[in-house]
Design a protein around this nucleic acid. Structure first.
Ligand code: FES
Ligand code: FES
Lengths: 145, 145
DNA sequence: CAAATAAAAGACAATTTTATCTTAAATGTT
DNA sequence: AACATTTAAGATAAAATTGTCTTTTATTTG
């Protein structure tokens, strides 16, 4: 709706990886997709994207899996995940679908849309994986239902 | 990105119909899709939806076309179009894709997402077709580029 | 080194969204 | 009444997104 399905899974997966890395555990695709209730093979693809974009880190072989360096948890923002998976149309696209959002030749919704989009953008660039994982840790939030 | 393509076309079409109805002109699908730069047959389908939902009015036959009663221009809000075409997942869906947004068992993004969503929702329910058409009328905004 | 494990990569399949085309129904004009 | 015009409806088609399956590559362990 706001994000693609791939992006939703990507965020949930990244948050779960963060939570587990906080405990020093590396996690595999099977566990991840189980815990965030997502299609496993599709989730694997998405984790690959996150890895290629250096948002999380992967290790092959026995006892391998995905992890995120605790040092990076705070600097890893939602905006990075969204950009890696959905691209930046959410930041640069016109709300009414004109080629590009352009203040010189704005669509009728431009001003109002820009407002919303800036809110969203600010939220995404200021929210870290660490922040999201901590709510989970204390049982206040959920990644599946 | 935020709205489906169908919804984008729907809003642009509705605004164009409003603009023309302001001048007392009824407009056909061909002219509409020309003026908003959208695929014609697809646009026709979308206009059907808007008509079925009583957002605009259609007249068949020679000199027929689409129009909106000037009395309705102010009460016709963007939220109606979005709801008619994209449904209400934009209002009730969870940002991270959990079955439904639910404050009792919130996803990690719930609070922040709700904020954005409320902004968006308020914007959509308070913006009328009339308001959007007037900007166009005076040449400040555009429906195609 | 061989075997087992786990991610990476690539081909393929299903579903949804976007888009087109054809026929039918309604309405005004001659 | 016949005809032209224009929306409505329904059947298809194309493209994009979502999802699966198989093979390859890297790494650990015995
Ligand atoms: S031009 Fe449409 S949102 Fe800026
Ligand atoms: S539960 Fe996810 S947005 Fe409310």
């Amino acid at each position: 709706m706001m994000f693609s399905k791939a992006c939703e899974y990507g965020i949930r997966a990244a948050v779960y990886v963060t939570l587990q890395s906080l405990e020093g555990r590396r996690v595999g695709v099977n566990e991840i997709s189980e815990e965030i209730d997502s299609p496993i093979a599709f989730t694997a693809k998405i984790l690959q994207q996150l890895t290629r974009n250096n948002i999380i880190h992967s290790v092959k072989g026995p006892n391998g899996g995905f992890e995120i360096d605790p040092e990076d948890m705070n600097s890893a923002k939602l905006s990075m995940i969204v950009k890696a998976i959905d691209g930046d149309k959410i930041y640069t696209g016109c709300g009414l679908g004109l080629k590009e959002c352009n203040a010189q030749k704005p669509c009728p919704l431009h001003d109002k849309f820009l407002d919303i989009r800036n809110n969203l953008s600010t939220m995404l660039t200021s929210t870290s994986l660490y922040e999201l994982a901590t709510g989970l840790e204390v049982g206040l939030t959920y990644l599946k239902r």
